[in-house]
Each structure stands twice: as structure tokens, then as C-alpha cells.
């Protein structure tokens, strides 16, 4: 994999990290911070319990776009 695409990937990852950090913290949480329920489940709880798997899904998709790293097939030279 070329260096350029690795660098690009790295940047995309970082963006997602930031997004994740922000979305799982204040003030985003504040948006859902009231007692209304949705199908009997409080919105905040719902937000967290849905947002979380979504993040995992994002990681999963990303993981499948990465090819196997060539480093692993090299024999360890000393």
C-alpha cells in the first residue's frame, strides 16, 4: 500500500476519532439530556445504546478496506 494512501487513511481515522469523541461527550449529550422516552426507553439511553454500535460498525467497515500489511509476511531479519 502506498504511503500516500496510508497517510490519507490515517487522516480519515483521526477525523473519525475526533467525531467520536465529540459526539459521545458534551455538548452533544446535552441534546438528549431529558426524560422523554421513546418506546419506553429514555432518549439519552437510546442515543448511547444506538450510537455505540454505529461507531463499531464504522470501524468494521473501515477495517475491511485495509489490505493485509506486507510487514507480516516478511521473515524477521534479526
Amino acid at each position: 500500500m502506498s504511503d500516500k494512501s496510508t497517510a490519507q487513511q490515517r487522516q480519515i481515522w483521526l477525523i473519525f476519532l475526533f467525531l467520536g469523541v465529540i459526539m459521545l461527550n458534551f455538548p452533544f449529550l446535552q441534546i438528549f439530556n431529558h426524560i422523554n422516552t421513546f418506546c419506553g426507553i429514555p432518549v439519552l439511553v437510546l442515543y448511547l445504546l444506538v450510537g455505540w454500535p454505529i461507531s463499531i460498525l464504522v470501524i468494521y467497515i473501515f477495517a475491511h478496506t485495509i489490505k493485509d500489511d506486507s510487514n507480516s509476511s516478511e521473515k524477521e531479519d534479526d
Partner: peptide, 26 residues
């Protein structure tokens, strides 16, 4: 709800693992 943070944190850092953790492992 703040018990969730203990598990949300690791989820977030997994975003960096392909680069960070792999580098450390290498």
C-alpha cells in the same frame, strides 16, 4: 449512566488502533 464511559472510551480509541497499536506491536 457514567459507567458507560469506561467502555465508550476503549471504543473510541479503537479508531486509532490500526496505526497506534500496530506501531507499538511492531
Amino acid at each position: 449512566l457514567d459507567f458507560l464511559t469506561i467502555y465508550l472510551g476503549p471504543t473510541l480509541i479503537c479508531f486509532t488502533w490500526w496505526f497506534l497499536l500496530r506501531k507499538i506491536i511492531l
